[in-house]
């Protein structure tokens, strides 16, 4: 339950309010996170928040991409190279990779939701021959809010279809305008052998799952990453309950067959 000191050895400003930190253990490292898992990240004296791992599984360094939305995330976002933060983890369920050979893999990320999916994209690139089609569908508020844009060409070069859409754009934007579920409409995949990994705002995930289900993807093959207030990460504090689930232990990644009835109940 005690945070391990990690030093910031790299930092990239992704958007105006989002940064990626590369963290290396000062002394003892935590176990390598599997794609989809999260750590509790501590800013000295300020507080601790759950942040998904956005880099490849690696015991020697941990990569987190985080958005400044509150006091703690602001402090973490503002961390400079050389600064020491605390990490606990990794916690929670993962994306369940690899999925069966020959599957179509549809990865759908909205906003900061692309961060926990990036390790899954890396997995798909690494084992591209294992799968039939691999598509990454990305949505954001505006073009300026898109994450990891410098990598999209590499992903495409690696045999991954990348679809990008934004909610609103100015005249400099040459890409698509519309919501992420719209990208599913035109996508070619074999529904019965597709696994979809979805992360983003809850409403976006609901609409995305609906579009996938309408195309015939089985609900259990749609995996969503849910979020609730997490304090301990170890199923001891009770904050992250969603009905029968303790999301730090039974989530964040949950099959839509389980998530649908729970997220459908208001204020559960």
């Amino acid at each position: 339950m005690m945070p391990l000191p990690y030093r910031v050895t790299g930092r990239r400003q992704e958007t105006s309010d989002t940064a990626t930190l590369i963290l290396e253990p000062v002394r003892q490292p935590m176990a390598a996170a599997r794609p989809g898992q999260f750590s509790m990240v501590y800013a000295f004296g300020v507080g601790e928040v759950p942040i998904s791992v956005s880099g490849p599984p690696d015991a020697d360094l941990v990569v987190h991409t985080l958005r400044a939305v509150g006091a703690v995330t602001r402090a973490l976002h503002d961390a400079r190279v050389g600064q020491v933060l605390g990490l606990r983890g990794p916690y929670g369920t993962d994306w369940g990779l690899p999925v069966p050979v020959g599957s179509d893999l549809v990865i759908v990320g909205g906003g900061i939701g692309l961060a926990p999916l990036r390790p899954a994209v890396y997995h798909a690139l690494d084992q591209r021959a294992r799968y039939r089609r691999v598509a990454v569908l990305i949505g954001a508020r505006t073009p300026d809010d898109l994450l990891f844009t410098k990598e999209y060409d590499d992903w495409r070069a690696g045999g991954v279809e990348v679809g990008v859409t934004v909610d609103r754009a100015d005249t400099t934007w040459a890409g698509r305008v519309g919501v992420v579920p719209d990208l599913i409409t035109g996508l070619e995949f074999a529904p019965e052998s597709t696994v979809a990994l979805v992360c983003g705002p809850e409403v976006m995930m609901r609409f995305t799952a609906r579009a996938l289900l309408r195309r015939g993807v089985p609900p259990a093959a749609v995996r969503v990453s849910l979020e609730r207030n997490m304090h301990c990460g170890t199923a001891l504090c009770g904050h992250c309950q969603l009905g029968p689930l303790l999301l730090c232990r039974d989530g964040p990644v949950v099959g839509y067959d389980r998530a649908q009835p729970l997220t459908g109940v208001k204020e559960l």
């Binding site: 501590y42 000295f44 004296g45 300020v46 507080g47 601790e48 304090h231 301990c232 001891l236 504090c237 009770g238 904050h239």
Partner: peptide, 18 residues
């Protein structure tokens, strides 16, 4: 059994507690 954590520092900022 539910709990919350509180993170604090002293005035120097060199000592923190949970």
């Amino acid at each position: 059994f539910c709990t919350s954590v509180e993170d604090t520092t002293d005035l120097t900022g060199d000592h923190a507690e949970r």
